[in-house]
Design a binder for these strands. Structure first.
Lengths: 146, 146
DNA sequence: TATTGTTATACTCTATAACTATA
DNA sequence: TATAGTTATAGAGTATAACAATA
């Protein structure tokens, strides 16, 4: 009794692509009420602990620097981040979170915790850790290749 | 010693989203020389074993039926699939692979096998099976919710 | 000369609305 | 009335090219 979708689901890559899509869609749904997109949360996460330029944020998120302009614009408009010229290299902006940005990040992190609890509700804690570990190792392998 | 990216990588959902992106990008790179996109291969895979309408292909791939029109157009233009009116319901087309389409599918499957071998090269066979099983269970859980 | 941030622009992907034909 | 396929169109998202300021 083979359903059409079974053919696709037999491929690990296909399952991971679909799971990634579902996880992203669930994250976006959870963040929408906070007025944030997943990419905004990624930026806030990176600048929470490091003072980074937009170029460094682009590298860290895998986005083009022209795309980063708009994301930082959004965060600035929401009052969640500020741009300040780097005195050591005046071509750069240092992007920093505001107190409101840190509060928003904490709310976003909690929303994402709940998303993950739902997405991985079919797994035990140990299984989820195993999934994380194996996925991380596979991701590292793809990145070493290019 | 925390790198900026470590903050993001601590989230299982983030790792899975990125791994899915990398897997898809690797698949597209491997299929490009064959003149195929991943979505074309998905359609060919579904029609290899089942006679399906475009609407059923849309449901099976998660794409809109207006998008499916173009994909079937592509496969037809490449000589990989044919449209035939369903005599039982003349609103429907039955989409079927041609012999050339089946040959192309086999070549694509081999290319994707090699992609997966590379993507999961850091994992043992047993670990890869575990990853597949856990990811499948998580995916099923998200789909039962909606 | 090279890099950072910016803007304008173009491209890709996908969905929405409206249509024809069939049920 | 509803569904399958189609077309035209619009929207979101992203990258490429070109520019100003700074290194």
């Amino acid at each position: 009794m083979t359903s059409p979708a079974d053919q696709l689901a037999s491929r690990t890559g296909y399952v991971l692509i679909k799971l990634g899509e579902e996880a992203l869609a669930a994250a976006e749904r959870a963040l929408a009420p906070l007025g944030l997109r997943a990419k905004h949360v990624n930026v806030l996460t990176l600048i929470e602990t490091h003072r980074l330029s937009q170029q460094q944020l682009s590298t860290g998120t895998g986005l083009d620097r022209t795309t980063m302009v708009g994301l930082v614009d959004d965060l600035e408009a929401a009052g969640y981040a500020t741009r300040e010229r780097d005195p050591d290299d005046r071509r750069r902006y240092v992007v920093s979170p505001t107190p409101a940005g840190l509060t928003a990040l904490r709310a976003a992190a909690q929303a994402l915790d709940e998303v993950e609890a739902a997405v991985f509700s079919g797994l035990t804690v140990a299984e989820r850790r195993t999934l994380h570990r194996l996925a991380t190792r596979a991701l590292d392998a793809t990145r070493q290749r290019g």
